[in-house]
Design a protein around this nucleic acid. Structure first.
Lengths: 307, 307
DNA sequence: GTGCATCTATCAAATTTTTTGATAGATAAT
DNA sequence: ATTATCTATCAAAAAATTTGATAGATGCAC
């Protein structure tokens, strides 16, 4: 079994066709065909469903592809380790795949990445998107276990519990905030009062679900008046007095001048954390990232690693 | 980076020389030299210390080799998955690397393996030895994390605790037994009484340490009169009346006709368990093994897997 | 239904990579 | 000093992969 064959298979699945894969691999289409063919021959099974449309994975390759990605991760690790053993080393080379969601990508990552880049100018980053509207633990677990991501940011309500095959810890807590118009004179709002208001909430986000659950747990109910697709729209609408916006603090990029935040009587917050596979603790790029994260959030319970 | 290059490096390290590696790889020595050389060229670092003696790993390759083994495991998994997707499948093909210690190898494994072989006649087994006299958790952890073994048997005194990156569970408890001569008429022995006796114990084994610790915890002390290198010798000596033997039940292959077991007033036992990396739960050979293990020990808490 | 566009498979030739066998050079032990 | 045992290197041979061209298959538009 050759690594090039596995890579060809993976690229075909990722791009949906032999021709696209060839393009990305900088090869002739016949080379991709040959490589996948050889692999199928060696393994004795068909690995792809071919058709007019191109090619797509079948049951066999579905099971195999996570292993190919894992192998790629190990190869990346070998390259990183090697470069770290070089004399004239200029930081880690390679690429770090980070699964993230909006607030993490927008507010948490930038300072970390910029500090990381100073030490490791050759390190590249790849963001992998959670499927829209689902960045709960379940999904990030898949991202890590299928070796699509090296590191995953997660958000959650309930306290983190140890999973036996993932290392997960909290980085910070993010408080939900109530956004209203500038001239709203109330000093504080209880959730009972909030439930009376016209609410403007996100259409897809976890947050809306979480706030809804919180209402339920208090025996309250509220169907948001507006369900909008973007956090920035929530802000704008709330600042126009169309209703009350509820957003986690980190999701508020810039508060409009005509808007205002009113504290809630009791705090509702989400946790934001990071998750990795235990084996990644030995990969230089991952270690470097965690080291920066720790510098940024010294209190976060990053697992013991001699950084 | 080619898989053949990584394999060559690994074999050189394992066999201690390019020439031996070539022999095992069925290649010319120059091919091994070429492959390792190419790898060193690509990674830009020396990977081996060469000399009159052959070649041995250096700091760089020490870090890299676990990743090579991990890649091999993934390739094995791909092969197993493929063969399980074949039509005329005749069981799983491949090889299962089991880290074990004497009692497990001698008393627990045989029935499991023979049942496993019935279903999967093409499956091979490889036993990897714990370094002599150390089969405690720490070591099996290394075996698994360095991808030297797929499955590890362990023994332990204290209750198992969850480690965040290993799945470990108890298979059975194994009671320590006191072996004496046939005509010893005592019906039962307390540990206080045992401490008074001349003891015959194993020289290398974990067990001796554990029994010693047990004495200490009771405020007793006893330096064994004989420290012998083999369990069977303990039995023979005890049966000759040279002293009292202490052995876990599973370590007693066959009780000599002139020997006898006296129950202890309070039971001292060791746990015997199994440990794997979470990712191995998806590997067919490992699943098959665990399935057999479960059939043999229905009460053991094998982690949920849809077998 | 015909023709078109888009896909994969296949072929022979060209190219590249890997292996081989022979040998040189290095080094420790006798 | 000799020998045995190791690795590196070289040119030639063998094997593999890649290429470019083309055939064949299949859905889609008209």
């Amino acid at each position: 079994m050759k690594f090039a064959q596995l890579e060809a298979l993976l690229k075909v699945v990722e791009t949906g066709s032999f021709s696209n894969a060839a393009l990305e691999l900088d090869q002739a289409q016949s080379a991709v065909s040959y490589n996948v063919g050889e692999l199928e021959l060696e393994l004795g099974i068909k690995l792809l469903e071919r058709g007019r449309f191109g090619a797509k994975e079948n049951d066999s390759s579905k099971d195999i592809i996570p292993h190919i990605r894992a192998i790629q991760q190990h190869i990346a690790a070998i390259e990183q380790i090697s470069s770290s053993h070089k004399k004239g080393k200029k930081g880690i080379v390679g690429s770090l795949k980070i699964a993230t969601f909006r607030s993490a990508a927008g507010r948490i990552l930038p300072p970390i990445l910029s500090s990381l880049r100073k030490k490791h100018p050759k390190l590249r980053f790849e963001f992998v998107d959670f499927a829209t509207a689902d960045n709960s633990l379940g999904n990030s677990e898949q991202m890590l276990k299928q070796h699509i991501a090296d590191i995953a940011f997660i958000e959650y309500d309930i306290p983190l519990q140890d999973s036996s095959d993932l290392i997960t810890w909290e980085v910070l807590k993010d408080e939900y905030q109530v956004i209203t118009v500038k001239d709203d004179s109330r000093k504080s709002l209880t959730w009972e009062e909030i439930a009376q208001e016209d609410l403007i909430m996100d259409m897809h986000d976890e947050c809306a679900i979480r706030v809804h659950a919180h209402f339920e747990s208090l025996g309250l109910s509220n169907t948001p008046l507006y369900r909008v697709p973007q956090d920035s729209t929530i802000l704008r609408m709330a600042s126009e007095g169309l209703g009350i916006g509820i957003l986690p603090k980190l999701a508020i990029d810039e508060l409009p001048k005509t808007a205002k935040i009113i504290p809630t009587a009791t705090v509702l917050e989400r946790g934001i954390g990071v998750s990795i596979l235990p084996s990644m603790l030995k990969v230089p790029a991952v270690r470097a990232f965690l080291s920066c994260l720790k510098a940024m959030y010294p209190d976060s319970a990053i697992p013991a690693l001699d950084l």
